[in-house]
Design a protein around this nucleic acid. Sequence first.
DNA 1: GTTACTCAGTAACAAATGTTACAAAACATG
DNA 2: CATGTTTTGTAACATTTGTTACTGAGTAAC
Lengths: 210, 210
Amino acid sequence: MFKEIKINYGSLFEDALLKEIEEVGVYKEVRKDDKLIEIGAYVKSMPLLISGAIKILREDGDGNELFLYFLEKGDTCAMTLSCCIGQGQSKIRAVAEVDSCLYMIPVQKMEEWTSKYKSWRNFVFASYHNRLLELLDTIDNIAFLNLDKRLLKYLQDKSKITNSNIVSSTHQEIAYDLNTSRVVISRLLKALENKKVIELQRNKIVLLES
Amino acid sequence: MFKEIKINYGSLFEDALLKEIEEVGVYKEVRKDDKLIEIGAYVKSMPLLISGAIKILREDGDGNELFLYFLEKGDTCAMTLSCCIGQGQSKIRAVAEVDSCLYMIPVQKMEEWTSKYKSWRNFVFASYHNRLLELLDTIDNIAFLNLDKRLLKYLQDKSKITNSNIVSSTHQEIAYDLNTSRVVISRLLKALENKKVIELQRNKIVLLES
DNA sequence: GTTACTCAGTAACAAATGTTACAAAACATG
DNA sequence: CATGTTTTGTAACATTTGTTACTGAGTAAC
């Protein structure tokens, strides 16, 4: 199991750090749709993603949901890092988008490693950097794009993450992620189908080459 | 001038670091509406804000603009930090919201101090943390609120930043920040006035107590 | 096959936001 | 105070998105 860490993070971290990761880390497998972190939950460990993909969601007080971005292999969750500094409550929900493998690191190690290992520091900074960019991208999408464009981007994102041109979602699920209603998504999907951009099947959307 | 740094950051930083800041930092005053950073610009120094307020904006390729958040006294720009790590090009625009005083730190010091001073590390992490929270808040606003609510929040934000219940902006300026049109803002402002939430004057919006 | 359930398609309408066009009010300048 | 400019108000209409209601297609279980 630890071999996986070496493959994915070996070039980033020095050997001493890798050794520590092996010692304190806990290997964990999750299935598609497993919830990893809930909003408001106290964060006790930090995930290093080895394989699969994690969907990060935001929710307001009224149950409205919004997809933010995906984490992929080699990523960690800057939000989790961030929570270690603040009051420790998660501001986001994390759900496995596909079956995934993680290495969980106790948050106490965070600060220790930050002063001890330059490579860890760089990793953490890079992670923050990437998350900021992802959030900016998310903001661009919601602020500057109409729903049809956002929907298409969403489908392309999903397709990329699952490495397949078939997106297996119901219209309702997509509607939740984009914080709109099922009818609206159905309407826009139908329009995309008419434009020969996608093909619709039950529980399935096929992205056509273009 | 350096006294100001001590007042605002003295409790955060150890003496050795304060001394270094004094040595390499450059004091800078900017006037309202001065542009501090432009999108795409290469970032060579990092601001520590001593007084005033800085408006952070995002822009898409077509000239559409969007207000993200304000920086205040004691803040620094995590985006700038972030840029030091990435390719160095700014993803945002920074404009002085009011006359402000800054202390500019060459970015080369960043990494040096990060390994040398624990207090600096904590400051940088806290800064990232705050910026992530601000961005999440921005996302909440655009994703979950209608324009009328967003507009009101925007006015309240501005009021708080300038420490006055009078917001001195034209409808057009507000429209740019919220990425909508002047007519829409005029309409919504008029509705807020009818509800006795604000009072409208030329170049001025008075927030009424409630 | 019959039944029940989930998912998708669609119409009709409502609400929110965007656009165009024009006029009036406030202000600045000579 | 006559003129031009900026700012605001408003109407009329277009587009986008949201809502409600109903239908049928596909699937699963019996």
